[in-house]
Design a protein around this nucleic acid. Structure first.
Lengths: 154, 154
DNA sequence: CGTGAAAGTAAGGTCAG
DNA sequence: CTGACCTTACTTTCACG
């Protein structure tokens, strides 16, 4: 699955605006429209591009409060356990296991502070969670592109 | 900027697949294609939808190393300064000012550890940065984004 | 908000380098 | 094997009821 520089520029163009026409993108990267399409199709088939989505302003949807929660778990907790538990929270936007003191870092969107607190308490109450430490987002500065997980880690 | 239940279903449909046709979405939510378009146009004008983008698999693009960096800045540093500085790093996927000890939390994708370290050093070398603390992502557990918008704090 | 017609865009096949 | 051209079909878009 090798991507060359042309592919990267196409992905970058799509990341900025996924609704640009192939002809438009082709003009920017120096290809014809069908050539761009063929590359995009290949990128999708290879899994480099996993889909198309919208950028949404969470506040407009009533998601006003954002925060990150560090989870400290019991020592025998597997990533799969964490993932399984967190997947039941619609408020969890992303989660990863990380190096350092904490075991996992969880990004949360809630409608307001009360909602955020409620979610936090429920997460802290999960059987494998020993404690949590959270920070609230004051203002989002940058949000560039959307990544995905096709996989289920071991 | 009020969104009703119909708008939310349209946004949800677009979040899953932003390339679905208006007719398709309309069939799902019970509207005609032009009606869906009118609502999407309005959502874009209101800022609820800020754009269309691709979901990419970072690993497939050679972005194998992911991490979060806490930035500790000088006390007179404004969010705008941070945003301006970080926007020049293509490796920065997202950044927010946060409560707690650190001033900002920055998500970074790099091609490998060496690359990550180089970016980290450059960020740490920014004039307003006093120190940084970073954690590496071991395995992504969830990435549910409906990704969101930047924009421009005071 | 739904229906129709016009324009633009995408998709597939075919050919050339 | 990769890129360009052409034709067909679809989606988007606007005017109107």
């Amino acid at each position: 699955m090798r991507l060359n520089e042309l592919d990267e520029r196409i992905v970058q163009a799509l990341a900025e605006d996924a609704r640009r026409s192939y002809a438009d993108i082709g003009a920017q990267v120096g290809l014809s429209a069908p050539a761009v399409k063929r590359r995009v199709d290949r990128l999708r088939a290879e899994g480099a591009i996993t889909g198309f989505t919208v950028r949404v302003d969470p506040a407009a949807l009533g998601w006003e409060t954002e925060g990150y929660v560090e989870m400290f778990c019991r020592h025998n907790t597997s990533p799969r356990d964490i993932r399984h538990a967190l997947s039941r929270y619609p408020e969890v936007a992303s989660a990863s296991t990380v190096t350092g003191d904490a075991d996992a870092l969880v990004q949360i969107f809630a409608s307001d502070m009360r909602h955020f607190e409620r979610v936090l308490e429920r997460i802290a109450g999960e059987p494998f969670v020993e404690r949590t430490k959270s920070v609230l987002v004051l203002s989002p500065l940058l949000r560039r592109y959307t990544a995905t997980t096709p996989d289920t880690p071991a």
